[in-house]
Simulated assay, not measured.
Amino acid sequence: MLGNALPITLGGIAVYLLPQRALYIPAHQLLVIADWHLGKIQHFRKNGIFIPQNTLANELQQLTALTAVYPTRHVLFLGDLFHSSWNPEWDMLLTYLAERTSLTFSLIIGNHDIIDFERNGSGHLALYDQWELDNQLIFTHQPMASVPEGFINVTGHVHPGYTIRAKGKQRYRLPCFYRERQTFILPAFGKYTGLHTVSPSEDAAIYLILGDEVVHHRPRFR
């Protein structure tokens, strides 16, 4: 069922890192997604940047496929679900959420989630500033400055990527999951979000997304 997902443990909880840039917690049938930035496509088009048609529909189909492959009751968005103020993609999202009556959807509000929820609606989204699970995981949009003892902060915002070297002096910058001490950062789910290259310390863990699999990468330090 879990295909090429990579199993790890966070705060004593078994989770799976998905090559589709999401995290799955089977004990709670919880799917966690960070930094989708829906609406950014419209932003690009307004500025004359070509983006293929039906991109949002394709990404929504990807979410549908994930919740089918990984039995899901709850989808938690770690902020920056939407990129800016209202545009038609927001209404498309609300329609999509309303049609999935068997699922619970929650949003931890991020810095780009500037939608006027009272005016434009939040549909079936429950809204939070942060969310806790089993007194072990704290979910936020931005990494916490100080994580309480005994907790792991699962977060987004950073869009982590890591550069690897290949033969012939080639370099590839790849999205990754990134852990440093009590902070675990998810890659951005959205395709048009960009990457921030992380510079790991020796006690950090990097989980690279290589096509349809996630691998634990161990950098060499001189």
Rank of each mutant, 00 (worst) to 15 (best):
L2A: 09
G3Q: 14
G3Y: 09
N4P: 06
A5P: 02
I8P: 10
I8F: 09
G12T: 07
I13F: 01
A14D: 12
A14P: 12
L17Q: 02
R21Q: 11
R21M: 04
I25T: 09
Q29D: 11
A34I: 02
D35S: 01
W36K: 04
H37D: 11
I41P: 08
I41D: 15
F44S: 13
R45P: 15
I51P: 01
T55W: 05
L56H: 06
L56S: 03
A57R: 10
N58A: 15
L60H: 00
L60V: 02
Q61D: 15
L63M: 09
A65N: 09
Y70I: 09
H74I: 11
G79V: 02
G79W: 03
D80E: 04
S84A: 13
S85C: 13
S85N: 14
W86S: 09
M92Y: 10
Y96E: 00
L97F: 02
A98D: 05
E99I: 01
T101H: 03
T101V: 11
L103P: 03
F105W: 15
G110Y: 00
H112P: 06
D113G: 00
D113H: 03
I114V: 15
I115P: 06
D116R: 04
F117P: 02
F117K: 03
N120A: 12
G121S: 06
G123R: 12
G123F: 12
G123L: 08
G123Y: 11
G123A: 06
G123M: 13
G123V: 10
A126D: 05
Q130G: 10
W131M: 11
W131G: 05
F139C: 10
H141L: 01
P143Q: 08
P143N: 00
A145V: 12
V147M: 10
G150K: 04
F151V: 03
F151K: 12
I152E: 00
T155Y: 03
G156C: 06
V158E: 13
P160G: 08
Y162N: 07
A166Q: 11
R173G: 06
Y178Q: 07
Q182V: 03
Q182S: 13
T183F: 02
T183C: 03
F184V: 08
F184K: 08
L186E: 03
T193V: 05
G194Y: 00
H196A: 15
H196M: 14
S199P: 07
P200E: 07
E202D: 12
E202F: 12
D203G: 12
D203Q: 14
A205E: 15
I206S: 02
Y207K: 05
L208K: 02
L208W: 06
L210V: 13
L210R: 11
D212L: 01
E213P: 02
V214I: 03
V214C: 04
R218F: 13
R220L: 12
F221W: 10
R222V: 07
